[in-house]
C-alpha cells in the first residue's frame, strides 16, 4: 500500500526498471518458483539457443512446460544468452516443447523478457521471420492452456513469438511494445534522444496495455521495482500463474481454443 503514496513513474522510468540489470531473470524465477525443472535443449534442426530456454517444471502442484527468454546475471552469462535476443532456433525449440506440452496434456507457462528477436545476418539466413510466424500460427491453436507473463521487456515480434496465450499477465514495471522507444524516436522523431517522449507516446506500460485490452491483468511489484525484493515479486508471479491455470483448467479444450481465437480477433476492434 506504500506504493499508492509514491509518485507515479513516467513511462521512461518504467523502461529503466524493466531493463534493470538486477531485475529477476528466468533463472531466478525457476529457482524461486519451481520445485523441479528439467531443461530440454535444442530445436532438433540446427542448434540450442541459449537466449530462449525451456523444459518441464513443477510450479506448486502443477506440472507444466515452462519456456522463456533468458537474460544473464553477469557479463559472461549475458554474452552466452545474447542479452535475451533469441534466434530462429530458439523459437523452433519453444515450438518443439509446446508440442510436447500438447502431447502430454501439460499447460504452457511462457515468461517474456527480451529486447527483441536477434537482428543478425545468420538469424535472417535461418529464417527469423518464418520461425516467429509459425509460432504465432501454432500457438493460436495449441490444444493446451497457455499462460504468458511479461516479466521485463516485451520487445516486439521477439516477445510475441512466445506470447500468444489464453491469459497475458504483465508485471507492474514491465513494458511491451511494437518497437523500442529509442528505435521509434530515431525513425519518427529523427532523434534517438526523444526516446522518453516516444515511450510515453507508444503507450507501452502495463496500465496502458490493460486499457487497450492487450493484457488481462497486472501483477504488482514491491515498492521500487521487482529487483528490490525479488522473492516477493516472484511469489506474486507464482500465485498469479497458479490462479490462472486453475481457472483455465475448468474449460474444455474446444472452449479454450475458441476463446483464445476470439481474444486475439478482438484486438484492434474499436
Amino acid at each position: 500500500m506504500a506504493k499508492k503514496t509514491q509518485k507515479k513513474l513516467t513511462a521512461w522510468e518504467i523502461v529503466q526498471l524493466a531493463r534493470h540489470a538486477e531485475r529477476p531473470n528466468i533463472t531466478a524465477y525457476i529457482e524461486a518458483m519451481c520445485d523441479d525443472f528439467i531443461e530440454l535443449h535444442g530445436d532438433r534442426l540446427f542448434g540450442d539457443d541459449r537466449s530462449l530456454i525451456g523444459g518441464f517444471a513443477t510450479i506448486g502442484n502443477e506440472r507444466v512446460v515452462l519456456i522463456g527468454h533468458r537474460k544473464g546475471s553477469s557479463v559472461e552469462e549475458n554474452i552466452e544468452a545474447n542479452f535475451g535476443m533469441a534466434s530462429p532456433e530458439g523459437y523452433r525449440k519453444a515450438m518443439r516443447l509446446m508440442k510436447l506440452a500438447e502431447k502430454y496434456s501439460l499447460p504452457v507457462v511462457s515468461l517474456v523478457d527480451t529486447p527483441g528477436a536477434y537482428p543478425g545476418s545468420e538469424a535472417e539466413a535461418n529464417g527469423q521471420a518464418e520461425a516467429i510466424a509459425h509460432n504465432l500460427e501454432f500457438m493460436a491453436r495449441l490444444k493446451t492452456p497457455v499462460v504468458v507473463v511479461v516479466c521485463g521487456e516485451g520487445g516486439s515480434g521477439g516477445a510475441l513469438g512466445i506470447a500468444v496465450g489464453d491469459r497475458i499477465l504483465m508485471l507492474e514495471n514491465a513494458v511491451y511494445s511494437v518497437i523500442s522507444p529509442e528505435g521509434c524516436a530515431s525513425i519518427l522523431w529523427r532523434d534517438g534522444s526523444q526516446a522518453p517522449l516516444a515511450a510515453e507516446t507508444l503507450k507501452i506500460t502495463a496500465e496502458h496495455l490493460l486499457e487497450l485490452g492487450v493484457i488481462d491483468s497486472i501483477i504488482s511489484e514491491p515498492a521500487g521495482g521487482a529487483h528490490k525484493k525479488p522473492a516477493a515479486a516472484i511469489a506474486s508471479v507464482k500465485k498469479a500463474i497458479l490462479k490462472e491455470l486453475a481457472e483455465l483448467g475448468k474449460l474444455t479444450l474446444d472452449d479454450l481454443i475458441e476463446q483464445r481465437y476470439q481474444k486475439f480477433a478482438a484486438m484492434g476492434r474499436f
Partner: peptide, 10 residues
C-alpha cells in the same frame, strides 16, 4: 503501437 503488434497474432 502494441495494437499493431497484436495484428501479427490475430
Amino acid at each position: 503501437g502494441i495494437v499493431s503488434l497484436m495484428q501479427m497474432a490475430k
